[in-house]
Design a binder for these strands. Structure first.
Lengths: 124, 124
DNA sequence: TCACTACTTCGACAAGCTTCTAAACAGGAG
DNA sequence: CTCCTGTTTAGAAGCTTGTCGAAGTAGTGA
């Protein structure tokens, strides 16, 4: 599991997404499209050392341990985080490439004039 | 409609998201976490002139017109697109600020993983 | 070996989402 | 005005998701 294609697509407004790419990206986006998982991801990413054990995360929520575990699994299946057991505890950390892929998808668009034909985008 | 708080949060791995911010962002992310809506968004954004009418979008899908309309409404409610009727047709265009907000959330992370984990996902 | 702690899997249920058909609404043409 | 086309709304069927309690697995230590 956790099969992730790291390089994928042009920014969303550059060219139409193929059906396959869209399905692929939707899996990853579904994973982050949840308040709990979004917070989990940011808690893991901003935790000292770049990783956090489940025991660090659980207290931040009014949810049962199985539910937290479920959300972590969703994030891991989507390839956004990875984990390892070290002794008693299981540690999670962000997979930067996966997050970067989402960032690239929503690459900056020209701010003004949505309707006056100003679609000039920078490449990077 | 389309009330969107444009400025919101630090990149996901910078600091823990507040409950409120996470809920806010999840709404927007849910909107794009669907293959159809993702393709709609990219078709609109990449269409000549930066806007597209429903009649441009519908032929690209094996879905009924009401279904397309529903998805467009979800995107519009989330503030990602806006629309205007011009005569017979309704035109849609992307709201750059909203897309940029998502891009900022997934701002580039340092590539090297905290634990020497590259993009090797060995589960199990 | 046994007990204890940390975490995950299982099974179930309520809530939500995607999709459809049918019907309503808005504009343009005859 | 009446009909036709383009688009949205309404209501319902079927699948997916978020959540829980109970049970299972993994590691630590007496």
């Amino acid at each position: 599991m956790t099969a992730v294609t790291i390089q994928c697509c042009a920014p969303i407004a550059r060219e139409p997404l193929s059906e396959g790419d869209a399905a692929d990206l939707a899996v990853m986006l579904k994973a982050v499209a949840d308040p709990v998982r979004l917070r989990l991801l940011s808690m893991i990413g901003s935790h000292a050392g770049g990783e956090a054990c489940v025991c660090d995360l659980t207290p931040g929520f009014d949810l049962s341990a199985p539910t937290i575990s479920h959300h972590l699994k969703v994030l891991r299946t989507a390839g956004l985080i990875d984990s390892e057991r070290r002794g008693t505890w299981v540690y999670y950390w962000i997979v930067p490439a996966a997050v970067n892929k989402l960032g690239a998808l929503f690459a900056p668009l020209a701010e003004p004039a949505p309707r006056s034909v100003e679609l000039e985008l920078t490449t990077g």
